[in-house]
Amino acid sequence: METQLQKALDELRLRILEMAALAEKAVDKALRAAFSRDVQLAEEVIEGDCNVNELQCAVDEKCLLLLALDQPVARDLRFILGCTYIATNLERVGDQAVNIAELALLLAQRPEMPHNPFMEELAETAKAMLHQAVTAFTKEDTVLAQSVCEMDARADTLDLKILKHYVDYMIQESRAVERAVHLIIMSQNLERIGDLSTNIAENLIFIVKGVDIRQTCRPY
């Protein structure tokens, strides 16, 4: 028979998963909107962000209530603290998706820029990092969480490569400066999604192992 606290923690976990599902979907939609110049999809992302925000408020309230009423200890306490952090990060992922969607709206009005494989790879990497972080949380898999931290280096490299690519491009084609700047911002948004995913994964490790690896990103 599960206790009241366990039930509440389960409920909390489910809310986080719901947030994660929404955030993942938002990122996916925003990127699809950006790559296929789909204005409608971009607007869907911008409108859908409030759901993630509402869920974050609900999670925060629930966490506070649990902390105050049940005075959990050890793993339960870490889980609740971790959940508030993860909810915050997921909410920010949602915001990044909105940023990307807004850029996609802007870019859809302008002529199309040449296809850039780095941007695609970065998008894939960021999506994969987020997905892995969420999967690690679902399965409480610290090994998977660790691998998210390791993927972050690739995202950073790609971000730099994209920056360099568009700086070179701007030198050649001054007409494309505005679009290139937007694309650089998009790349940074993606890189930020990678960072946020890393935070989520680190929090999962904190929940399961009680170890803080934020500064090192090294095996505990």
Binding site: L14, L17, E18, A20, A21, E24, K25, N51, V134, T138
Partner: peptide, 21 residues
């Protein structure tokens, strides 16, 4: 494939889709 590990849990654990839940 995740559904095998999600028996006894909510559908969201097997299918990451908030609208389905």
């Amino acid at each position: 494939p995740g559904v095998a590990a999600a028996v006894g849990k909510k559908p969201l654990e097997a299918v990451m889709d908030a609208s389905l839940q």
